[in-house]
Write a protein that binds this DNA or RNA. Structure first.
Length: 254
DNA sequence: ATGGCAGGAAGCTCCTGA
């Protein structure tokens, strides 16, 4: 079973890339972030024609998340229980015996921004909610754009990024709190090339120079860790014409 | 100190992203 997470930065613009990739790679599950479209505009016909079912939660212009799967997503839930948040950032569903949580963590903008406080509060709610969800669903994967580079090796130039949003100590501590629930960062279960990233700025030829960050992750709960056979980043999708600024992250489970 | 690039909405400029 192959699971993927991809921040598409507009599903409308990236739909051709997505359909080509589904046809070529045929992942079993794809969690999408930053749809940037309302549910009424979700391209459900094209997705179904590609052989996938979908559960989605969108909004105009910003945010928006979806779970695509070969099987019908069961027990779909929206958002974080107990957090009244109009921003569409979380959707959950079950595929077989695996619970999937597709998340688009807030960006935070800058450390002195209200959005940064929103991000930290959001992560606290998210972590508390996942603690409860794990009781219900022990075999869980949390996939998406976390907007946190967990360690310096996930940053192309740690010195230049020091003190910036996405790498700040409070954000990294929040990421560790997630892992403390019993999750593993699937990417680090395996040997990986140095300077592996999932996001590159559109500006300054950042992708060609590999000036990136690893901020998209797939976390696996304890029962799924021994089932994980590989974890990788599909860098090729960042090479296409008019790409998303993120590349998909992928895991293979038995 | 700020832009660089991209997408969306609005409407010929601004907000957000990371």
């Amino acid at each position: 079973m192959r699971l993927a997470a991809w921040n598409v930065n507009s599903l409308k613009v990236r739909l051709p890339h997505l359909l080509d990739w589904l046809a070529a790679d045929q992942p079993d599950v794809v969690c999408l972030q930053e749809l940037k479209l309302e549910d009424a505009k979700f391209p459900i016909a094209e997705i179904e024609r590609a052989g996938y079912q979908a559960a989605y939660s969108g909004q105009k212009t910003y945010n928006g998340v979806a779970i695509l799967a070969r099987e019908i997503p069961e027990s779909v839930e929206f958002g974080i229980a107990g957090l009244d948040d109009p921003q569409r950032r979380v959707i959950s569903a079950s595929i077989g015996d695996v619970r999937l949580v597709c998340a688009y963590v807030p960006n935070g903008q800058s450390l002195d921004s209200d959005k940064y406080q929103y991000k930290l509060g959001w992560l606290k709610s998210f972590t508390g909610w996942l603690r409860d969800e794990l009781q219900k669903y022990p075999a869980m994967a949390v996939l998406g754009d976390f907007n946190i580079a967990p360690e310096d090796r996930d940053v192309h130039d740690p010195k230049a990024w020091q003190g910036q949003v996405l790498v700040s100590p409070a954000e990294r501590a929040a990421f560790q709190e997630l892992l403390a629930l019993g999750f593993k960062d699937s990417f680090r279960l395996f040997e990986q090339p140095e300077k592996s990233f999932s996001w590159w700025d559109y500006r300054m030829n950042a992708f060609k120079r590999n000036l990136g960050l690893r901020i998209d992750h797939i976390l696996l709960s304890a029962p799924l860790v021994p089932r994980c056979k590989s974890s990788s980043i599909a860098v090729d999708l960042r090479k296409l014409e008019r790409p998303s600024d993120h590349a998909p992250v992928i895991v293979e489970l038995d």
